[in-house]
């Protein structure tokens, strides 16, 4: 493969490109978890909003209460719809040398980590996920822990397979 990259940004034609279509979808059951998370979030936010209003009821004109209430409901409904619509965008891809995850409708994001940069792999099951036999795979690289790859909503069997596979792929310690 040529690496004639220096004179222009045009790259060698045969560079392996990530195609969005090749991605594997996450488990449809995961959508339920997203809904439940949404509900919990909504209830917490709604209750705190309510408490806030009850305290300040006397001081705030009524129309502001209505506007904020409407806004809250509007935002909740909107994000619920977005969650549903963007669900099909979620997907992961394991290639010969790297792992990738994509998500997002309004803001599409694609993250890749080469196998030889993985420090360790984690399999996590939240309480709800456990009930549905789902799991999350977390891939860590060295240094900062915030930008690692996370694939939620995998069937447990596949998740543990991925973990085994990735753990096997992690390069042995630096040799030099």
């Amino acid at each position: 493969m040529t690496t004639d990259f220096s004179n222009s940004v045009i790259l060698p034609e045969n560079l392996p490109a990530i195609e969005a279509a090749e991605f594997n979808p996450v488990d449809p059951k995961y959508l339920k978890i997203l809904y439940i998370n949404h509900l919990i979030m909504g209830v917490i936010l709604g209750l705190s909003l309510l408490v806030f209003f009850l305290i300040l009821k006397a001081k705030i004109p009524e129309f502001i209460l209505w506007i904020s209430g409407g806004l809250f409901v509007g935002i909740m409904v909107y994000s619920l719809i977005i969650t549903r619509l963007s669900f099909s965008k979620r997907g992961y891809l394991i290639r010969e040398k790297d792992i990738a995850y994509q998500r997002g409708l309004i803001r599409y994001k694609l993250t890749s980590i080469p196998f030889n940069r993985i420090q360790h792999v984690e399999l996590i099951q939240t309480f709800i996920a456990k009930k549905m036999d789902l799991a999350t795979i977390k891939v860590y690289t060295a240094g900062s822990s915030s930008d690692d790859l996370e694939i939620p909503g995998l069937p447990l069997g596949i998740a543990s397979q991925i973990r085994e596979f990735l753990t096997g792929k992690i390069s042995p310690d630096e040799k030099d």
């Binding site: 997002g104 409708l105 309004i106 803001r107 599409y108 994001k109 694609l110 993250t111 890749s112 980590i113 080469p114 940069r117 690289t141 060295a142 240094g143 930008d147 690692d148 790859l149």
Partner: peptide
């Protein structure tokens, strides 16, 4: 390089 992230907003597609 350790990871790469590509992101695009639907408005700029």
């Amino acid at each position: 390089v350790q990871h790469l992230k590509f992101s695009q907003s639907i408005f700029y597609k």
